[in-house]
Simulated assay, not measured.
Amino acid sequence: MTVEIIPLAKHIGAEIRGVDLGKPIDPSLREQIHEAWLKNIVLLFRDQKLTQQDLLDATAVFGKIGKLGRPKEFRPAGYDSLLENIMLISNIRENGEPIGALPDGEMMFHHDMLHAEIPHKGTCLYSVEVPSSGGNTVFANGYAAYETLPEEVKLALDGKRAFHHYNYGTTKKGANNGVAAFSESTHPIFRTHEDTGRKTIYVNRLMTVKIEGMLEDESNRLLEQVYDHSEKPEWRYEHVWRPGDLLVWDNRCSMHARTDFSAGERRLMLRTTIEGNVRPY
């Protein structure tokens, strides 16, 4: 089978048509999909009807399924049938408590699992229920941002590393929402993608705290320049969700954010990740 690949935006994203992820994916099709993922960074599969096992099988097309990257007590409650490596992202509440993680409102740009020593390379998100408006996911191309970064900023940050901190469940920097569990890491500011060999920006507004070995004022000034440049509209694709959408994105060379949505409307997504196998370099 030859897949149909439709670009979603100039610099990032493609829709894959003609593929039912609820059916077995043969090796040839698997290779085509994986190549499209490396090229386009974000892939969209519309109108999927996936069981939990189907979602895990679809995730495995892109690599080894990642384990949930948070302590057990901070995993979503309810939905007891969920398999171990699937996380709920939801604002639905039972007895006043959300059944899922990251329940409400907008979320700053971030790379999933940047705070881990060996971050997961990709994320899959499958929509079950979506609000009538908002709750969109916005992606930005880290390759394009790096390649167009002002030369003086590149020179100032070349070879430098940044320290990252994340409180589980936090959607905005500086807010811990009463969550005590956290994870921290240190990675290169400019990462090399191990599969493509391309350089990409690997810091973000939500999780990055400081540049190692640099005074705070200078670190903040340079990081703000990088954030502002990385988040420019020209590098972006904004996805408006429909039920049955599956998005797969590469965390090594993209970051993403979430737009605000009404707390009075239900949103339920199932999330899996693709395990990383190298330390960022």
Rank of each mutant, 00 (worst) to 15 (best):
A175M: 00
A140F: 03
F190M: 10
N136L: 11
P150W: 04
K160E: 11
E147V: 05
S185P: 02
R198H: 15
L157E: 09
S183Q: 06
E147C: 09
K173Y: 06
V153H: 08
K172W: 01
S185Q: 02
G169R: 00
E147Q: 15
G169L: 05
M207F: 10
Y168T: 03
V138G: 07
T200V: 15
A180Q: 06
N167S: 09
H164V: 07
T148I: 05
T170S: 15
H164W: 04
A180E: 04
H165C: 06
A162W: 04
G135E: 14
G159F: 12
T170K: 01
N167T: 09
F139D: 12
T186C: 11
T200W: 13
G135N: 14
V138A: 12
L155T: 13
Y166S: 06
F182I: 00
G142D: 07
N167E: 02
A140H: 08
N167G: 01
K199M: 15
R191I: 09
N176I: 06
Y143E: 09
A145D: 03
G135V: 12
D158W: 11
H187G: 09
T171C: 03
P188R: 10
T196E: 05
K199E: 15
Y166V: 02
A144H: 11
N176E: 11
H187L: 08
H193P: 12
V153D: 06
T137G: 14
H193F: 02
K160I: 03
L206E: 07
V138L: 14
R205L: 04
T192G: 10
P188K: 08
E184M: 02
I189V: 12
F163H: 12
G174Y: 01
E147F: 02
G169V: 05
V179S: 13
M207V: 13
A156V: 05
E194C: 09
H164C: 09
M207S: 11
V153L: 12
F182R: 00
R161D: 09
G135P: 13
E184T: 08
G174V: 00
A181W: 02
L155Y: 10
D158C: 02
H164F: 05
T186N: 10
F182G: 00
A180W: 01
G174H: 01
K160T: 13
A181M: 00
R198Y: 14
V179C: 07
H187C: 10
N167Q: 03
H164T: 11
